[in-house]
Simulated assay, not measured.
Amino acid sequence: MARYTGPKTKISRIFGEPILGNGKYLGKNSNPPGQHGAARKRKQLGEYAMQLKEKQKAKYTYGVLERQFYKTFVEAARRKGVTGENLIKLLEARLDNTVFRLGIAPSRPAARQLVSHKHVCVNGEVVNIPSFQLKPGDVITLAPKAAHNTAFTSVIRGKNAKFSWLDWNESEQKGTFIAYPERESVPENIREQLIVELYSK
């Protein structure tokens, strides 16, 4: 169950945007991490560096390590349609990401922990695999024990209205994965075409 556990602000400074948090320490003068900051960095990144950076951004954003990310890309390439869009759809369909999107957990790492500790059910069955791929129509709820624990229910804030591919029932405390999202509906600032080009080399 390996995952990144280092400083979140450091990762945000690498990409210049708050991909792992609220970005409150990211000012307009924030430099990349390292002894010399931006001073020793090339002003213009090469093609390969830009592609690699975009892949790293996607991996950190969704909390996926290299091998799992590559397997997801292979599955995206196998499916019909645009590979880059398929990749984003598969990443969005991960159970931990959906728990976060539904507002059950405040962050993706928190959602991952919630799933790993058997506090989440899919279609009435406990699932403790964060990378579990949801299908349209799947219903996500808290496990019975967690559903009656105020430590879990008090942090539920409900789904953001802009996530149209998900449905959240406030009274029943359950969410539904309606469909795979269209790329323009996903707010993440990821240029997936660069990732496709990187893996196509």
Rank of each mutant, 00 (worst) to 15 (best):
T5H: 13
N22M: 09
K80E: 15
Y60F: 15
L95R: 05
P33W: 06
T176R: 12
F69R: 02
L194E: 08
Q173I: 14
W168E: 04
L65T: 06
K145E: 15
P109R: 02
H119V: 03
P32W: 02
I129H: 01
I104Y: 05
V74S: 10
Q113M: 09
L166Y: 02
K89Y: 07
G27E: 09
R191K: 14
K24Y: 08
Y4D: 04
C121H: 07
K162A: 13
R78Q: 14
I11G: 04
K201N: 11
R40V: 14
A93R: 10
I104W: 00
G124W: 09
V64W: 01
V155G: 00
R94G: 04
K55D: 04
L26R: 04
V64E: 00
P130A: 01
V127P: 05
H119N: 15
S200W: 03
D138R: 02
Y62Q: 01
V127A: 01
R13N: 12
L91Y: 02
Y60S: 04
G103R: 00
P136H: 09
R101M: 02
P32Y: 08
G23N: 08
I190F: 06
H119T: 09
T5F: 07
T72F: 10
A143L: 05
Q133P: 09
N31V: 14
V82L: 08
K59D: 00
Y180R: 07
V64R: 00
Y62D: 01
I156L: 03
T5R: 15
